[in-house]
């Protein structure tokens, strides 16, 4: 099977994730979409690894997973604490940083 199809799939997943980040307001969904994008990247890395015949891509994919796991921990904690204080998980409500 042609590995290029995996790349198509990866870009499709990435686009879906990106669209979700841009469009959705629920922080949890946005978060999941970010995960989706990361996984799309992982898929692309693994595919490249296969294409080039070395392990570099797979190593980076592992790195990504580790970082993503850490991110989930921190991110979820933030979301939960925001939800607690504001009773909303909408990202638009957290716009206090603007001038």
């Amino acid at each position: 099977m042609n590995p290029v199809y995996y790349l198509y799939l990866a870009s499709l997943l990435f686009t879906i994730g990106a669209a979700g980040v841009l469009i959705r307001r629920n922080a949890i969904v946005v978060f999941m979409c970010v995960e989706l994008m990361l996984n799309a990247c992982n898929l692309a890395f693994v595919t490249f690894s296969r294409l080039h015949g070395n392990l570099d891509g797979q190593i980076i994919a592992f790195f990504t997973m580790v970082v993503a796991a850490a991110e989930v921990v921190v991110g979820l904690a933030i979301i939960v604490s925001v939800f607690r204080s504001r009773h909303s998980a909408s990202v638009d409500d957290a716009s206090l940083m603007k001038l």
Binding site: A18, V21, I23, R25, V30, V91, M97
Partner: peptide, 17 residues
């Protein structure tokens, strides 16, 4: 230019993309 900084994370994300 200040108006661009509206505080919505997704607007920043759009400009990033």
């Amino acid at each position: 230019l200040r108006k661009l900084q509206n505080g919505y994370a997704r607007t920043y994300a759009v400009s990033m993309f």
